[in-house]
Nucleic acid binder design. Structure first.
Length: 573
DNA sequence: GCCGTTTTCGGCCCGACTGTTTTCAGTCG
């Protein structure tokens, strides 16, 4: 029973309560509880064991009881009751954009609709229009919503969403009369996956902008077009919302639409206690309604007595308190990075030579890189055995002589085998400057076994970094079962760094784990794991995730000088 | 169901767009 399982149960309870038209604030509490548990850095089981559940904001007596029950038995009575409720089968309908609880209940009561397939049939047969307050356009909207749902059920990975969003910003930003354009929402906060893309614009004539927006060649459908808000669905299935705003309250709107929702609620609440009313239209005196500010985001924060809070940490994970006490982190930036410590070459499964990778890295302004090809256990990747690795290390040393202006460290990504031993001999590892340990096989071991395996692997004194520690592939493969807290503690004990793998499909460690590592005093290495030179630019996604994890440059070993890095790499030997 | 610089009771963010409707409910963010 993982955190996400608890979260899903709370979300389903909230959905059914909504269908039953229950107290909206009670519903909100379940939703908040779900979000809080999902975002927890720790295993909820640990909180239960330590009796710390109710110290988490959003978890009160009732939810804490239910969590304990779920952790102990896999479910809870409230959830079992919900599953027996007549409304429960209708949950599927709520996943269709445009169908909310009220409509779902009516569709069920008046047409006997229970599933998405039922709904599609009813809409196609024209059974909806003619019912009270339902017309042909609603039918159309529902059919389109079903199509969108089927095409794009999951969330979009950050890198993919950024690609689309940046293209839109370029297109609209180039139009005459556009004075500002920004991405907002979860994309500006750089979350690992994005629900939809939000774009904010301030411009003189809205008509032109809306026309340009809705007629982009990437658009498959226009959902709405108004003076201040328009929405389209791209051919890729991603929804994009465009908002056109006056310059006077642009900052307030940007803050509002950047979110997160929890952050906004907390900021508004703080404002309220100070006699202010904060909305997307600005900061107002609550009594006189007089506009006090909102031209830019700094004004909004200033109004509630806070310094500017970077978008990536606006999650209500303590940033408002930290800002209030003037102890916000000085977040790492891309320009702080001096090197990349995991990449592959043609020696194993990469596409470029050592020299080509080094040249490209030098163009990025890096001072050093490590070449870290696979070890022999990863057969599909052409991993190297001891003898081959020794020869490869020599080639790397030679390349280091040949390519000026950048230090090329000899490294290896060595597999931790199922029994926790390493795939190469100590004598081989000793020849390398950087040893990254990794798991590429037997992903489905039980939690205790997997944790023991990894902890044994990193005991080896030549290991410097644990690669992509949870093994997940976003939207594709769940992380393997591993006790991340135990891994962080072991990393602290042994003095190794944990990797934040910047490869867009991985982002592993994820944000909350990075933060937990930092708090435990464990260093992070942000690596792209590139298999071709161009992929070295994926560092930006790692930086985004690192910022979400509150990391500062000093927490990340590949921001350090070569001398300091070398000292760190050598200290266990 | 949660929470507390006014509170252990009584609040809990709020506006735009759509569709179907002559005044608004539902959905969404």
């Amino acid at each position: 029973m993982e955190n996400i399982d608890v979260a899903r149960i709370f979300d389903e309870i909230a959905d059914v309560l909504e269908l039953k038209n229950e107290n909206p604030f009670r519903i909100r509490s379940y939703r908040r509880g779900a979000r809080v548990v999902r975002d927890l850095a720790e295993d909820v089981k640990t909180l239960v064991a330590d009796g710390r559940l109710e110290t988490v904001s959003g978890i009160g007596e009732s939810l804490a009881e239910k969590i304990e029950e779920i952790v102990g038995t896999g479910t809870c009575k409230a959830y079992e009751d919900i599953k027996r409720d007549a409304h429960y089968p209708l949950l599927e309908l709520l996943r269709i954009p445009g169908v909310g609880p009220k409509l779902a209940v009516r569709l069920h009561q008046e047409l006997g609709v229970r599933t998405v397939d039922d709904l599609e049939q009813a809409a196609r047969a024209g059974k909806l229009h003619g019912l009270v307050r339902m017309g042909e356009k609603l039918e159309d909207k529902i059919l389109k919503g079903i199509a969108q749902h089927r095409k794009h059920a999951g969330r979009t990975k950050l890198a993919e969403a950024l690609t689309y969003a940046e293209a839109i910003v370029r297109t609209l930003g180039g139009l005459k009369g556009v004075s500002r354009i920004d991405m907002a929402g979860s994309l500006r906060r750089m979350r690992e996956t994005i629900g939809d893309i939000d774009i904010l614009v301030t411009a003189q004539a809205s008509e032109e902008i809306v026309d340009a927006f809705t007629s982009m060649d990437t658009v498959s459908e226009v959902l709405a077009r108004g003076d201040t808000k328009s929405s389209v669905v791209l051919k890729s299935g991603i929804q994009v919302d465009l908002r056109i705003l006056p310059r006077a309250n642009y900052g307030a709107a940007l803050h509002y639409f950047t979110g997160s929702k929890d952050h906004n609620v907390a900021i508004r609440d703080r404002g309220k206690r100070m006699g202010l009313k904060i909305s997307e239209y600005g900061v107002f005196n609550a009594k006189t309604e007089k506009l006090l500010g909102g031209k830019d985001e700094v004004e909004v924060f200033k109004a509630v007595g806070l310094p500017f809070i970077p978008p990536e940490i606006r999650e209500n994970w303590g940033e408002i308190e930290a800002a209030g006490e003037r102890r916000l982190p000085d977040l790492i930036e891309l320009k702080d990075i001096r090197g990349d410590l995991q990449m592959h070459t043609t020696a194993s499964d990469g596409g470029n030579s050592i020299e080509e990778m080094a040249s490209f890295a030098r163009k990025l302004g890096y001072k050093y890189i490590a070449i870290t090809d696979h070890s022999k256990a990863v057969k599909v990747a052409g991993g190297l055995n001891d003898k081959e690795m020794a020869a490869h290390a020599k080639r790397i040393r030679k390349a280091n002589e040949a390519v000026p202006g950048i230090e090329i460290l000899a490294g290896v990504e060595v597999d931790i085998l199922a029994d926790g031993s390493l795939d190469l001999a100590d004598e081989t590892l000793q020849m390398c400057d950087v040893v990254i340990a990794a798991i590429h096989s037997r992903f489905n071991m039980p939690r205790e076994d997997m944790t023991r395996r990894v902890l044994k692997g990193i005991q080896n004194k030549y290991v410097n970094i644990m690669a992509h520690p949870t093994g997940r592939l976003i939207n594709e493969r769940e992380p393997y079962e591993i006790d991340v807290e135990a891994l962080i503690a072991a990393a602290k004990r042994t003095g190794i760094a944990l990797e934040l793998n910047a490869y867009p499909d991985r982002l592993d460690l994820k944000d909350v784990h990075c933060r937990a590592a930092k708090e435990a005093g464990v260093k992070i290495s942000i690596d792209t794991d590139s298999h071709a030179d161009l992929q070295l630019t994926a560092m930006r996604y790692g930086i985004a995730t690192a910022r979400r994890g509150w990391l500062e440059a000093g927490d990340v070993i590949n921001t350090w000088s070569l001398a300091k890095l070398k000292k760190f790499l050598a200290k266990r030997r």
